[in-house]
Amino acid sequence: MDYNIKFIKEFIQLTINGYEQNWHERNGGNLSYRLKDEEVEAIQKYCDFSGEFKPIGTSVPKLAGEYFLVTGSGKFFRNVSLDPENNICIIQLDEKGENYRILWGLKNGGRPTSELPTHLMNHEIKKVTTNNKHRVIYHCHPANIIALTFTMPLDNKIITRELWEMATECPVVFPSGVGIVEWMVPGGRDIAVATSKLMDKYDVVIWAHHGIFCSGEDFDTTFGLAHTVEKSAEILVKVISMGENKLQTITPQNFRDLAVDFKVTLPEEFLFEK
């Protein structure tokens, strides 16, 4: 494989960035990218189409036949840049969107991320809701956002508003807010369904006591979204640790004024008086 191909190079760089942020302990977290037609053409010569199709664990008919670059199950983000061919893989879905086969990668054996059902269901809904623009799904374990899910109500309105207040750019970076999935066993179809329902509305979904999923058009935007959410959560953790005695904050009208200047739409459901 030519690791200078742009999407592969950027995929690997995101795994480096996420590991350096301390969001990927051991084999924690996963990443997937939906290839464009010209990218599929560029990697054809590296692909082996003789592998058998295996069940995804869910059905994603709107992604039938599409190609994805994904991290491997049980693989460490810290090792992706050291040995890409052993830690990531390119897969293709069948004509029904119910099975996948590995075309390249995982040279020493293995399978795509255990969260593949969630990734693909998120990709499917985002392909529709963003008019084919979103192509990256990123799951990581940022400590501060996870910590907040133990102490705050698992209410998207409350958590969105608190995160927005901590950093002025937050309502600009994720104007639709954040969705929340209460704790569920990861890796199966149930949590995939719950997450994809929220991805219909949000670009950020928090898994309580576990981590976050982010969706974006490209690697920079998606990583930047996760980075912004976690930075805001870090500030909130510090504010709470100081007694949460806010002497001043950003008001609902401040948010409305910000929305006008930055040309974003902020749902009024998050702009309640506290």
Rank of each mutant, 00 (worst) to 15 (best):
I88P: 03
L93Q: 04
V136Y: 06
A147V: 03
N144G: 00
C89T: 07
Y100L: 08
L120S: 05
L148H: 12
L120C: 05
V128K: 14
I125K: 06
K127F: 13
I125P: 04
A147P: 01
K133G: 01
L93E: 03
G109C: 09
G105Q: 01
L93D: 01
V128Q: 12
I88C: 12
T113M: 07
I146S: 09
K107E: 14
P112G: 10
I90P: 01
P117N: 10
S114T: 13
E115R: 04
N131K: 14
E115S: 13
C140D: 09
T130F: 07
N144W: 00
A143D: 14
H119I: 11
L106F: 11
A147M: 09
H139S: 10
D94C: 06
G97S: 03
E95P: 00
G109W: 06
T151K: 13
K127I: 01
G109T: 10
L116T: 14
I145N: 02
H119N: 07
G109I: 09
E115C: 04
I145M: 10
L116A: 11
I88T: 14
H123P: 00
H141R: 11
S114N: 13
T113A: 14
H119Q: 12
G97E: 06
C89E: 02
I91L: 10
V136R: 07
T130W: 09
G97A: 01
L103K: 06
R135H: 13
E115P: 01
E124S: 14
D94Y: 08
I88S: 00
I91M: 10
I137P: 03
L93V: 05
T113V: 08
I137R: 05
L103C: 12
E115N: 09
L93Y: 07
L103W: 02
T151G: 12
L148K: 13
I88K: 03
I88L: 05
N122E: 05
K127D: 06
L116E: 04
E95M: 04
Y138P: 01
K107F: 08
I145A: 01
I90M: 01
W104T: 06
T151M: 14
Q92L: 10
L106T: 04
T149L: 07
T149D: 07
T130P: 00
I145K: 02
T130N: 05
T118Y: 04
T129R: 11
K126I: 05
L116Q: 01
K96Y: 13
H134F: 15
L93F: 09
N132T: 02
L93N: 04
A147Y: 08
P142C: 11
L148A: 10
H139V: 04
F150G: 06
T113Q: 05
I102E: 02
P112K: 08
A147W: 05
I146Q: 08
S114V: 14
N132V: 02
C140N: 15
P142T: 10
K127R: 14
L148E: 11
S114R: 14
E98A: 09
F150K: 11
Y100I: 02
P112N: 06
T149I: 13
M121P: 02
R101Q: 15
N122R: 01
T151Q: 12
K96N: 15
K96A: 12
E98P: 02
T129I: 13
D94L: 05
E98L: 06
